[in-house]
């Protein structure tokens, strides 16, 4: 009896992610969701610019690679062309919460019937560890070498909190993938975000608190602990909006 196998919604391509990076887990959760909902063959994913730029090599569905921050606009164009298809974006924090803020807010405001997977690891990973819109106050990065000074560069953007005030948004939940319990909750949230789309309920965004051991300068284990001790206190997990009031507890 097979009790565990790779979802067919993932290809066999070896992933390029660093050791201890949680992108692989999140990819798998998205793939499992597509498979469980039996929509892989009708799905078009939109990859970001950032560490997940090569997501199109890993997801076994049709994929479009968008310009930095523009994934929700590209997804809008795909969904409007073919409303019967399932369309998701997979974006990092620089992509979604800095250069693509307008596209994020307005696709939510329009209630665009898409699913957004937002990976928040509080750093620009691909370019080598610069300060992200979600870097924590005091966090040391390549471009905040003395720690993020909120007096000069301001505060992190809390995406779920911000979008919870947008009438058009349907479902917003923040999850993490640093332990088994959290991974299970993340899976549930991601499935729900896709199910919402299938049911025509509108814009769902799942913010996944993720680790970046390489650019945080930690071991994978330390990075997972840092999520508990630093990230989650600043970015509390939970459902931030549920228009249809059916959040699974």
């Amino acid at each position: 009896m097979i009790v565990f196998e790779k979802p067919k919604a993932l290809t066999d391509a070896p992933m390029h992610y660093c050791p201890g990076c949680t992108h692989g887990i999140i990819h798998r959760l998205v793939a499992e969701a597509l498979e469980e909902l039996k929509v892989t063959g009708d799905t078009i994913g939109v990859a970001p610019v950032g560490c997940a730029v090569f997501a199109y090599n890993y997801f076994n569905c049709d994929m479009v690679e968008a310009a930095h921050g523009r994934a929700p606009a590209v997804a809008t164009g795909i969904k409007r062309a073919d409303p019967g298809k399932i369309v998701f974006t997979y974006q990092g924090d620089g992509d979604l919460a800095a250069i693509g803020t307008a596209e994020t807010v307005h696709s939510a405001a329009r209630g665009e019937n898409i699913t957004v997977i937002f990976v928040n690891n509080a750093i620009y990973g691909m370019t080598g560890g610069q300060m992200a819109p979600t870097s924590l106050p005091g966090q040391v990065t390549q471009t905040s070498p003395y720690g993020r000074d909120t007096a000069t560069v301001g505060f992190p953007v809390k995406v779920c909190e911000m979008l919870s005030k947008v009438d058009g948004a349907t479902y917003l939940e923040r999850v993490a993938v640093n332990n088994v319990k959290n991974v299970r909750a993340a899976k549930k949230a991601i499935v729900k975000a896709f199910r919402n789309q299938i049911e025509g309920k509108g814009f769902s965004l799942i913010e996944v608190i993720s680790s970046c051991p390489t650019n945080w300068g930690m071991t994978p284990q330390q990075a997972l602990e840092w999520i508990d001790t630093n990230m989650i206190p600043y970015y509390p997990l939970g459902v931030y909006k549920d228009k249809y009031g059916e959040a699974e507890k």
């Binding site: 939109v46 590209v74 997804a75 809008t76 062309a81 073919d82």
Partner: peptide
Amino acid sequence: IAAINMVIGTSAAGK
């Protein structure tokens, strides 16, 4: 910027 990226999406979808 969003408008031209929506064009990209719809064109990618073959329309």
